[in-house]
Amino acid sequence: MNQAANQSFDVEIRDVVYLDKAGAPLEARMYLPRGEGPFPLIVEIHGGAWCRGSRLDEHTLNEALAKRGIAVAAIDFTMPPAASYPASLCDINFAMRWVKSTAAQWRTRPELVGLLGVSSGGHQAIVTAMRSRDPLFAVEPLPLALAQTDAGLNADIDARAAFVVACWPVIDPLGRYLYAKALQSSGKPYPPAIDRVIPDQEKYWLTEDAMAEGSPAIALERGEPFDMPPVLYLQGEDDIVHPRAQLERFVTAWQRAGGNLTLRLYANEAESFITKQLDSAGTANAIADIGDFVLQQTETILAASLS
């Protein structure tokens, strides 16, 4: 992978259907570096407070990563009003297994597949990684044609991630909901996003109990057993939509549990800076940090496979 780290790749971009749910196809936009590989592959989960957005949202980020030799599968998933929690997490869990079962098509390997998510997508990336074999999410079986390869049946393929990149995740949905409600009740000025995220959270989660059940920060504090792949956690220092105190709670709990987590904070950057401030120094640094992290994790995995 040293070659990939120092090379700019041409990129093939195409859309494929990864899951057809009762005639409602879900697509992935594939960003594929041209070359032999094996390349790491990121399943990318867009933001939008669980209710808005599409696989096209992070095009600039995904294309930049592919040019560094990192394949990306940017996915659509089920959102309200079609279905609420946990429908999207079931789709994401399936997408991870789908990518692994078709890894050779994307010039990757199953053990090189990780997750990247933005805001609510960052939350879903962390949950998917932590609870990769949870029967609440692993409900869609792989089609037999994908579950069987030259090596035999792969029905045991799961959604475990090699690594996770979490860009300003909503790391505690219940805590963020209560925080947003308090900001709103205190009166303006507050970020316009607050007026959007409150109804979106209510549409997706339906109840505060569900927000707590699906909270990575609360789960860690309860001491529940989870998968803990290496994590890169990014956030702007001026972000007040994703409370800093909740970030610090999660980072402390993850590290206390023995997890490997790298935190990157970017000065003078607010929420969603990578996707909104495309020309800022913080965005350029963050995209470089993401690429460096993924390629480093890939080198470590490939080196271990040879030892």
Rank of each mutant, 00 (worst) to 15 (best):
A82G: 09
L115C: 04
E111N: 11
S101P: 01
S119D: 08
N62M: 07
K100C: 08
S120F: 08
A66K: 05
G121V: 11
A87P: 07
V72D: 01
W106K: 02
T60S: 13
E63F: 15
H123Q: 14
V99Y: 04
V118T: 15
L65A: 05
S84A: 15
A95T: 01
L61P: 08
Y85D: 07
S54P: 01
G117E: 02
S120L: 07
S54H: 07
P86G: 00
S84I: 07
T108C: 06
R133S: 11
P80K: 07
P110E: 02
S88C: 09
E111C: 10
R133A: 15
A129E: 03
L61F: 10
L61I: 08
A73R: 09
F94H: 06
E58Y: 15
W50I: 04
L61C: 13
L89N: 12
K100A: 10
A73M: 00
C90V: 05
A73K: 08
N93W: 02
W106S: 00
Y85P: 05
R97P: 06
P86I: 00
A129V: 00
P110C: 00
G114I: 11
S54N: 10
V72S: 03
I70M: 05
L65K: 07
G114R: 06
A71K: 03
P86Q: 02
G121R: 11
F77L: 03
Y85T: 04
P80G: 08
I92E: 05
V99G: 05
R133C: 12
I92C: 01
T128P: 00
R133H: 12
A82M: 09
V118S: 14
G69V: 09
G53F: 00
W98T: 10
M79T: 11
A95N: 01
I126H: 02
A74E: 00
A73P: 00
I126R: 05
I126M: 14
A66N: 02
A64V: 09
A71Q: 09
A66H: 04
T78N: 01
F77S: 06
S132I: 00
R52G: 07
T60Q: 15
R97M: 10
S101H: 01
R133Q: 14
G69E: 03
H59C: 07
A95Q: 02
R131H: 14
R52M: 13
R52A: 09
C90F: 06
A103L: 12
T128D: 05
S84Q: 12
A87K: 13
E58C: 13
F94K: 03
L61D: 06
H123C: 13
G117C: 06
H59Y: 13
A66V: 06
V72G: 02
M130S: 07
L112K: 04
I75A: 05
A87Y: 12
L112P: 11
D76A: 10
S132D: 02
S120C: 07
Q124C: 05
S120P: 07
H59M: 03
N62R: 04
D91A: 04
S88Y: 03
L61Y: 09
F94P: 05
S132K: 10
D91P: 06
T128W: 05
G114Y: 03
S84K: 12
T60C: 04
W98N: 11
S132V: 00
R109Y: 11
R97S: 01
A87H: 12
R133W: 02
G121Y: 13
L61H: 11
D91R: 10
V113F: 04
R55N: 11
W106T: 01
S54V: 04
R68K: 15
K100D: 11
E63C: 13
L61W: 08
G117Y: 06
